[in-house]
Write a protein that binds this DNA or RNA. Structure first.
Lengths: 481, 481
DNA sequence: GGGTATTTGTCCGTATGTATG
DNA sequence: TCATACATACGGACAAATACC
């Protein structure tokens, strides 16, 4: 950036000359690159073109740059030997990495650790199979969206809860697939579950800031509650989901749960527990956040109605997402508010803009209305079912009765319990030695000391069927060889 | 008009000197404008040039004007305390308007009020011209992004601060255009300014939850602060931006400002105020949120270095956005944190996912790296400049001295002050009757009772040049017909 | 791959204050 | 007081190079 002062005694052209020269010397403008054109710079500095020309001419004379009509002013190599021209950057890079390292133990955020381990058999469970995203269709839909009659809306501040068109599609879908009953006014689109949780933290804050969560449970939720000043009250999870007896004892009047496929244990809450939970909410005047994050992915079990669908008292806040079966990269989730919270939502959030890009809303809207979404779910579900079945089969075959499988028949992962009390650390380390990555359950415990050591998480979202069986064979060697 | 008497005892040059001086003091010759050139004046008065020069030299010495070769004698700001001149009788307005405060900022959420008024001349200022979005280019870039080597990342949870590639492009841009100095690690991408403010609310909460904001100022920011439990402390705004004297008195250690083009008054904070503000921050151990929301859109004024670029003590949190010159529908902004806050950011937000879809990040990244962004800015800036100039011209021509124009030469709107004390409600109502929509300033006042009634906001972001002149002609009839 | 639009440096004329004699 | 030369600054017209479609 060039800074000129009109009031100064030094002429304008000289100020420009000096600063550009300095930038060349400092290496801010690299050798071989072009100076900003005289017109552009003149306009941005509010001076005449000739003033800039004058400055550039001076640089020309002194051999810093070379001018060619029609192709601009090119910076010459002034540092003689190319060694010194690399120096300024080297120093800069040094400083950067130095300061970044001061960020202590906290994992570097700019680093995505999913891409480097191509050599592994990585049983991860959050990312999706890259082949499952409908790229060429997306391209077509983008074109359609951009040439649609309401394409001009990309230049506007849009509907604050999300485009009505899309909310209506979502409504149709959740009604059909999850029995959810609501009007479009109750739906709020937002950029991911964590943002959604932030919204709820605000809405529910008329109560005491206490929240009951599943233990173990989704860690990303806990972080949001904590940052919003909520006291987190862990409630243990059994084979029927959250422990209702414990919940009764808990003073919190807000609970966050994943009843359809508890994360990470995979427990499914039976219908009578669901009814009981709703009664609890009524009795305590409490609210329930039902996170139905991977409802699309069921393999051998009958669907159980969502809490929202059997709630008669407006106690359930329903969460859905496109992250688990379409793409996490979309950053798109939705909240379905109970009617009683809508006005409170408006009171607090009427001044907030929607967090999802309009174009993406339009695309997903087209995607759903043309039936691609339904087809996609069927396809992805089938694909994952195959992988799931093969994984379960391979485990049964190779690891036999040394493990119990928990939480299968849904989602993108399962839980392995080791009957001989092996510890997570050892299991993960041994697996890694054999080129296989499996995952701990520890991160999902609020009270880490309660975490049982003999559990391991295995995902099957990105491995091929062949890789799965080979991976398990390696694990057998690693753990019991 | 200057009168000289040859027979007088007072020398010619002194007669000229005195009369010009008087004209400057009386405001006949405005601050910033040029004196008649020595040649011209000499000729018209039939005196020698040196005589005029002599007179001008005297004015120079006394600080009334500044002389520079090639650019004449420029009148300086002699009325010193122009700080509060924008809203001089703020207190007087106290009595009139107390009740009208229920214009209630809260609007119906599901309703976008921009689309239904096609018949109006709508001088709105938030939405953009629909022709300015590069649709077909976007289509191509989408295709490129989807077939790029890292397209698989759409199925992953991605970099939490935003893709490094994009952060690097943004860095290059803000360094060049705004002098911002930072490393990519300091940049955080997020879905809009309000989300960004939410993040800062968390980061800065080690201090007391008090924030100083400009009054009038951006209402969307105030809402976020309130919802995050901050006490809002309005500080008045003058022609030089936020009132630093008042800020001194304010106990808050966090301030949110728009120094480049204050919203909505359009005031530009001069360099010496900027330095003073930074000193304030150091002295008080405070933080400054610099929202540079429409920095791209400058029309006739020289750029002033951003606060971030002259901050040596890590006191400035810089906000930028793509909403004002590319598309509000993208929902894309960025924060540039001071180094000292990066580790705190990691501590709180390392568990949060990025809120921008990967595909969009990739597209914008390509968009910028291929030079489209620079070109786009130039184009959009020129287009808006034309509209701006025409609006200003039309106002000057048709509304004449019944209004003062404030905050022009930048952004997408300007502020109209009515010299005869007409009220916002009346002005807006009358305009509407004639099919023209103009906007109130009331929504931007925390203490509505302080809001001066005789101001109106007019945007020029979506009207054609023809519509602008016609609209103004109608307004003339509506208001003064 | 060729035609058109845009971008770019160049050149020209004009206006201004400054310095000199 | 006048005339002249000079440095600085501004804006329009032109042709070559480039980018885009």
């Amino acid at each position: 950036m060039i800074n000129i002062v009109a009031e100064s005694n030094t002429p304008l052209y000289q100020q420009i000359y000096e600063q550009v020269k300095q930038q060349i010397i400092d290496g801010v403008i690299r050798e071989g690159s072009r100076l900003t054109s005289t017109r552009t710079l003149a306009k941005s500095l509010c001076v005449a073109r000739n003033t800039v020309e004058n400055a550039y001419a001076q640089l020309c004379l002194e051999g810093y740059v070379l001018n060619k009509p029609g192709s601009g002013f090119v910076v010459l190599d002034i540092h003689g030997d190319s060694l010194s021209s690399l120096f300024p950057n080297a120093i800069k890079a040094h400083q950067q990495s130095g300061s970044a390292s001061l960020t202590s133990r906290v994992q570097p955020i700019g680093f995505t650790d999913n891409l480097t381990k191509e050599c592994f058999y990585d049983f991860q469970y959050s990312n999706l199979d890259q082949t499952s995203f409908p790229s060429s269709l997306w391209r077509r839909l983008t074109a359609d969206a951009l040439s649609s009659f309401d394409a001009k809306r990309i230049s506007f501040y849009n509907d604050k809860q999300g485009e009505l068109e899309l909310r209506t599609e979502i409504l149709k879908y959740v009604r059909e697939s999850r029995g959810v009953r609501c009007s479009p006014e109750q739906i709020v689109l937002c950029c991911g579950t964590q943002y959604a949780l932030g919204v709820i933290c605000q809405l529910a804050s008329r109560n005491k800031r206490q929240i009951a969560v599943e233990e173990p449970g989704y860690d990303g939720a806990g972080i949001v509650f904590k940052n919003n000043g909520y006291e987190i009250m862990p409630v243990s999870v059994g084979t029927e989901g959250i422990n209702l007896g414990e919940l009764e004892q808990c003073p919190a009047k807000l609970v966050y749960i994943t009843p359809s496929h508890q994360f990470p244990t995979g427990a499914v809450m039976p219908i009578h527990n669901r009814l009981q939970l709703l009664q609890w909410a009524v009795k305590k005047d409490a609210l329930i956040i039902e996170d139905d994050y991977d409802s699309e992915l069921r393999y051998h079990t009958r669907p159980i109605p969502s809490l929202q669908s059997i709630d008669t008292d407006g106690r359930v806040i329903y969460f859905g997402t496109f992250s688990k079966s379409l793409s996490p990269g979309l950053r798109m989730s939705y909240i379905i508010l109970p009617e009683q919270l809508v006005s409170e939502y408006h009171r607090i959030y009427s001044g907030y803009y929607c967090t999802i890009p309009w174009l993406q809303q339009k695309i997903v809207s087209l995607y759903m209305s043309r039936g691609h979404w339904e087809r996609h779910i069927r396809k992805v579900c089938l694909q994952n079912k195959k992988r799931h079945d093969i994984l379960v089969q391979a485990i049964t075959e190779h690891l036999g009765d040394r493990v119990h499988i928990h939480g299968c028949n849904a989602g993108l992962h399962l839980l392995l319990e080791f009957t001989n009390g092996e510890s997570q650390e050892w299991l993960i380390e041994r697996a890694k030695v054999f080129g296989v990555q499996v995952y701990p359950t520890k991160p999902y415990w609020q009270r880490v000391e309660h975490c049982e050591a003999n559990f391991i998480l295995m995902g099957f979202s990105i491995l091929t069927e062949k890789e799965i069986t080979e991976g398990i064979r390696l694990l057998k060697d690693a753990w019991f060889g």
